[in-house]
């Protein structure tokens, strides 16, 4: 029993989210997930909204909306650490969904707190620690951002990045794709938060996401539904499983150094990985250009 949080009477049951008793059956989910820009050229990058400096008690912060994803990143640091002398900074990332949000892929990872998991009768508000999915995102973001930070300039201190996912897209498409898309944007948002915190970095890390279908075509910044529709037109078999998804992060001005890569999907060979990396690099450059002009504007 958790004595530190008010989680209701002990015999409280969390009801399952059932079906709707409406005559026409299932609840009409609002058609979301497609932004206005998605109708244009498919290699365009979805519009995103970015704002910095909204959190007053953090050293730096950034807020990003893309599609229905809402991400908030706060950077705390440099803060002191004690103990033995450490000549450079320590860096950590913690990524958390607000407790009511269904996490992409939780049906696979069987996260304990989820409402659609029938054997969980716990209040999501009482969750301690990170779920598998949050761990996965946290460690990717940490890996991608770590090489960019000039840790030697910050002895005896720590940087802590806290990512809060305020909203996600409704799970109308492949959860893996949703998860990777989210991760991709978290990396971009966290980089901007680091800049806002005046943390000295070698370069701003930006990342991109691509999807490759069976025939090997690379689709930059896939947005679920559009591609799925196309798939249905092609053939109706399990093409989704044959798709290869890739997220890769770069320091574009530092010789395009690759700082993080995450590829998932069917048959992956070297050729495809190269294609994926190049596609992600293209996207990361476009995002970088946007972020650059945003930052310069913010100063003037």
């Amino acid at each position: 029993m958790d004595r530190r949080r008010l989680l209701g009477p002990l015999n409280t049951v969390i009801p399952n989210i059932g079906i709707s008793s409406e005559i026409n059956g299932s609840k009409s989910t609002p058609q979301t997930g497609i932004s206005s820009s998605s109708s244009s050229n498919k290699n365009d990058i979805e519009n995103f909204f970015l704002k910095t400096g909204i959190i007053e008690n953090a050293n730096g912060s950034a807020y990003l909306e893309v599609g229905n994803n809402v991400i908030e990143v706060s950077v705390f640091g440099p803060r002191p650490i004690r103990g033995s002398f450490i000549d450079r900074a320590s860096f950590s990332v913690e990524c958390k969904f607000l407790p009511y949000i269904s996490q992409p892929g939780d049906e696979l990872f069987n996260t304990n707190n989820q409402f659609n998991n029938s054997n969980s009768n716990t209040n999501a508000n009482g969750r301690t620690g990170l779920t598998t999915i949050e761990h996965k995102i946290s460690s990717y973001v940490e890996t991608a951002l770590l090489p960019s930070i000039i840790l030697e300039k910050y002895p005896k201190s720590t940087f802590d990045v806290f990512v809060t996912i305020v909203a996600t897209e409704t799970p109308t498409y492949n959860s893996n794709e949703k998860l990777m898309r989210l991760t991709n944007w978290i990396v971009n948002c966290a980089s901007v938060a680091l800049v806002d915190a005046n943390v000295e970095v070698k370069d701003i890390v930006t990342s991109g996401i691509v999807k490759s279908n069976k025939s090997g075509d690379i689709i930059i910044d896939p947005r679920g539904q559009i591609e799925d529709e196309q798939n249905e037109q092609d053939e109706q078999d399990d093409q989704n499983e044959e798709n290869v998804l890739g997220v890769a992060s770069f320091m574009n001005l530092n010789n395009d150094q690759l700082v993080g890569i995450w590829v998932e999907g069917g048959d992956i060979d070297q050729d495809l990985v190269t294609k994926v990396i190049n596609g992600c690099n293209d996207m990361s450059k476009k995002i970088r250009a946007n972020i650059n002009s945003f930052l310069i504007d913010s100063l003037q």
């Binding site: 803060r79 002191p80 650490i81 004690r82 103990g83 450490i86 950590s92 840790l151």
Partner: peptide, 26 residues
Amino acid sequence: SNYQTVASSQSTMSAAQFQDIGENFR
């Protein structure tokens, strides 16, 4: 301490202790 729930901390050895909110450099 924010130590336990942090995903991992590849950049430092684990000997370091994090301090509390409002605890300054000394």
